[in-house]
């Protein structure tokens, strides 16, 4: 599917919700629980998570692909986990910025 920053998506298999914060151009095979993500508000309806993609997704964590071109933020947690195709996304390290306001 085509992604853009700000796009909100749900996992098709459970409660996980994400928002896209960084996206490469063109078609992106972003999945959760091994199934393509679905538009916000339509998630959790179909099927079960692929056992290989059931490592869990944590609220507030940013998940990236290995090139760093794709980044999504988890806004609702769940048991299924994110992948680009079959390659699992990993948690991006925390930002080191001091609080300024």
């Amino acid at each position: 599917m085509e992604l853009r920053p700000g796009l909100a998506l749900d996992s098709a298999v459970d409660q996980v919700s994400v928002i896209v914060t960084k996206a490469p151009a063109g078609d992106v095979d972003l999945r959760c629980g091994g199934k393509p993500l679905v538009p916000k508000g339509t998630g959790g309806a179909s099927g079960e998570a692929d056992a290989a993609h059931a490592m869990g997704t944590l609220i507030g964590k940013r998940y990236v692909d290995e090139t760093g071109a794709l980044e999504v933020l988890c806004t609702k947690p769940g048991g299924s986990s994110l992948s680009l195709g079959d390659a699992p996304l990993t948690v991006a390290s925390a930002k080191a910025l001091p609080s300024s306001d």
């Binding site: 914060t21 609220i59 507030g60 964590k61 933020l73 925390a94 930002k95 910025l97 609080s99 300024s100």
Partner: peptide
Amino acid sequence: LGSVEYAS
């Protein structure tokens, strides 16, 4: 999102 880490 650009400047704060969630629940940090």
